[in-house]
Amino acid sequence: MNIFRLAGDMTHLLSILVLLLKIYATKSCSGVSRKTQELYAIVFLARYLDLFTDFISVYNTFMKIVFIASSLAIVWCIRVHPMVKRSYDKDLDTFRHYLLVAASFLLALFLHEKFTFLEIFWAFSIYLEAVAILPQLVLLQRSGNVDNLTGQYVFFLGAYRGLYILNWIYRYLTEPRFTRWIACVSGVVQTALYADFFYYYFISWKNNSKLKLPA
């Protein structure tokens, strides 16, 4: 494991901790897209089916369990916790996320590394992760103002994707047999989705002002 991959995993973990902290400290999920969180829960459940078949390392297994548990915990908070549930604004969170699930699954049926149950669900999870942030970005854009913790959550998620690209470049240069088209192309698409957000994030950071996205 190289430093980019480790830093990527850590920012990913940090993003989830920031989100949990926001929900826990404010007992509110305002500005958070439940649909994006549900998509991430599906992503982790579909991708880590190999928990039962392949063992890579204690680190991998531990992180997989953390990602599954935390994503389910976040969805549970938004759907079930009485105080958090009240702050959920479903009129802002209208993205038709089931379309993303259907399209990703269809794509996985055609584009995969092997036609096996695990490989199709793995490819599906990669495609779905690439677009899972869309409901969140649309929600932020619609509400205009972004609170600090939600902004940091999206920032760390984007940083995680950027670091994974550096990790692939590093692996491509150092590992002779490193080719991974599905993950890398999807990863670049996913990172590109954050470009707009990052632009406004850096402007607000430079001006030391509150993050605002144009309508």
């Binding site: 190999d50 392949d54 890579i56 992180m63 997989k64 590394e113 793995w122 990790n167 080719t179 991974r180």
Partner: peptide, 10 residues
Amino acid sequence: VKDQVAKDEL
């Protein structure tokens, strides 16, 4: 030989 497409990333 280790599978070339081993899923060692998260």
